[in-house]
Amino acid sequence: MSDNSDNEVEELSSAAQVAQRFQEWWISERNCPVLLPYQGELVDCLLDQLDHMRQGLAQLKASDLRAGLHRLEVERIQYLINDYLRSRLKKIHKFLPQRPAPDMNVLLSDQERTFIDDVVNATFKHFHASALSQMPTGMQQLSLPERAEERDHYVFCRVKKAAPGVMVDADSIVDFDVAKSSQSAGHLLGSNTSSQASTNDDELRKKTPVPVVLWKNADVMRWLKRCCADQHTMYAHLFLEHDITGRSLVRMNECSLEKMGITNPDHKSELFREILKLKLKSDILEIKDLERAGADQSRPSSN
């Protein structure tokens, strides 16, 4: 997972992209009840950028309009960074003076680990000096259990890219469709899954499917095998013979299926249902894409 985010930072070329990405992490960190993986590269990168911007600002005249705008931007980014680090520290403070368990340790930065060590040591010193040393000898050793990650919280999620069939619990699967607006179609998920989803974000993005209308015959065969395995064994040769592509697939009706040679009414209606389902799904995706494109155009660029 961390490798994934490393690559991500290298891929991001402009400062605006880094800021955008960091802002997303900041929002997640603020809203998620548990710690998320530390975004050290992003923080360092942004701090670097801030230094550059400040140096640039020093050369501008104070009366310049651009100077004021840039200064506000610097302040804004500095606030994001500070608040990000603060909300992490707040979560860490909740479990002090317990030490984090190993599975939690990977989420922390080196600096945070040092900080926790320092504070825990100081606290135990204080406990010992003010209380434990006065207690009977058998009771002076105090060992607190390590703090494991708590995962039984629910959080709201906004789906950024469609990802059908994500395992939420062992027994339930959710189709993530791109939500029209953040409030109306948020998902309520255990944070266990959501932290997984937010880190697997890039992976989900790559899965965005090819539109059905552009499917070649091979894609159709693959779909047939996946969605209707029984029919695949019986009728695969028919689909192959008629060279059914995605475009012709969504235009099929029960008549054309019969003409192709699927005469069994049960099989025919079942197959037709699957086709309708596929059509519906692809239509929804298309609408979402259009809507998003519209939103992207109307939204002013953040930088």
Binding site: Q78, Y79, I81, N82, R86
Partner: peptide, 10 residues
């Protein structure tokens, strides 16, 4: 970074 600074969104 001084975390005590910038406590409110600017």
């Amino acid at each position: 970074v001084d975390l005590l600074q910038h406590s409110k969104p600017p």
